[in-house]
């Protein structure tokens, strides 16, 4: 392997460039092979396709609360009484940690549909069964760290940072709702 390139400086620069390019191409190639591995941890196609839930509210009487499952997580559906609606609407907005009007949280005032996962660390707040404690504000009470929600599912007291999320939903008919 006789090499005639004796012009050291020029040769060295070219060598550095070649080596750096090779290493860079190898590193980028490795990164590109790692991406499919990482991406495989994201939701699979079958999981993504199960993203809607339909249910009927026909059997939910006034004052009753039910829990439906959407994407494997609970969603609270509350048929609110007149008193509960009034209470949610007369709150002074400046008292709220996460300011939101009740009107913006329920498409039909009688039916509140909110995510059943506490916005603090994801426990399921109590309040859906008649025997459950509902907290100081008559809504839901999270037993894990004491977050208290009002009859609009808004955070009023405790460590949770946000109101219970309102999932995207639609009334398909008077009594049928689709979430997702």
């Amino acid at each position: 392997m006789a090499n005639t390139a004796h012009a050291e400086p020029a040769g060295e620069t070219r060598r550095d460039f070649l080596l750096h390019t090779t290493v860079a191409v190898g590193a980028v190639g490795t990164a590109m092979m790692v991406w499919p591995l990482i991406h495989s941890m994201n939701p699979a196609a079958d999981t993504l396709s199960l993203s809607t839930t339909e249910f009927s509210i026909a059997g939910v009487t006034e004052g009753q609360r039910i829990v439906v499952v959407w994407r494997g997580n609970p969603v609270f559906v509350a048929h609110r009484t007149k008193a509960e609606i009034d209470e949610a609407r007369k709150v002074n907005l400046s008292e709220l940690k996460d300011v939101q009007k009740d009107e913006d949280r329920a498409q039909k005032p009688e039916f509140l549909i909110v995510s059943g996962s506490c916005t603090h660390l994801g426990c399921i707040p109590l309040g859906s069964k008649p025997t459950d404690p509902k907290g100081e504000f008559g809504g839901w009470f999270c037993p894990c760290h004491g977050s208290q929600y009002d009859t609009s599912g808004r955070i009023r007291k405790g460590p949770a940072p946000r109101n219970l999320d309102v999932p995207p939903y639609k009334y398909l008919s008077e009594t049928t709702v689709r979430i997702g």
């Binding site: 392997m1 090499n3 060598r15 070649l18 190898g26 190639g29």
Partner: peptide, 23 residues
């Protein structure tokens, strides 16, 4: 194609590194 590019570069780099070694 990408692997081919890498392989060609690696070959050139290898030749360059080995240029002064008698083997």
């Amino acid at each position: 194609l990408y692997t081919l590019l890498f392989t060609v570069l690696a070959y050139l780099a290898k030749r360059r590194i080995w240029a002064k070694i008698e083997h």
